[in-house]
């Protein structure tokens, strides 16, 4: 076998080395790529399950207005009361889960589906909703509005 040609042996050795080199390189890539992607901070920044930073500034929420935002995968509503206070509630109506809205004309939260009314504390005051809306805690940090679940 050896006599048949050192040349043949040489190419085989080269081939094996090529496989090994490529394999090691590929493996490094296959490991480093996910790790790199893992280390890049995701768009959401941090877990939104317990608290969420809204993409609007406090100045953009005028008194007597409401704003629907995403809290985890659930809808929530941020309102500024006519007196200027910021409050946040779950925006899923407790009746059948429609998304509620803030009505400037009547100054409280209203569900269009079955005319359910909630006051500015989220309490169901008229119509079919059986329960108040879950309320969240609103904090303003500088120019950011942070809404979190009650602990």
């Amino acid at each position: 076998m050896m006599e048949r040609g050192g040349r043949n042996e040489q190419t085989r050795r080269g081939f094996v080395n090529w496989i090994l080199g490529t394999g090691v390189g590929g493996l490094l890539l296959a490991v480093l790529y996910p790790v790199g992607r893992y280390l890049v901070p995701p768009a959401a920044g941090e877990s939104a399950a317990a608290s969420v930073t809204l993409d609007i500034t406090p100045a953009e929420v005028t008194p007597n207005s409401g704003h629907i935002f995403k809290f985890g995968s659930r809808p929530a509503i941020l309102i500024r009361t006519p007196s200027g206070e910021l409050r946040a509630f779950s925006a899923a109506c407790t009746h059948l889960g429609c998304i509620v809205q803030y009505r400037e004309d009547i100054g409280h939260i209203w569900c269009a589906c079955h005319n359910g009314h909630f006051d500015l504390n989220g309490r169901n005051i008229q119509g079919p909703p059986p329960r108040p809306l879950d309320s969240f805690v609103v904090n303003v940090r500088g120019d950011e509005i942070v809404v979190s679940k009650t602990s």
Partner: peptide
């Protein structure tokens, strides 16, 4: 990834 690993294993065996 598994393909790469298998390739490497073949290389090692060789």
């Amino acid at each position: 990834s598994v393909g790469i690993i298998v390739l490497l294993i073949i290389g090692l065996v060789l």
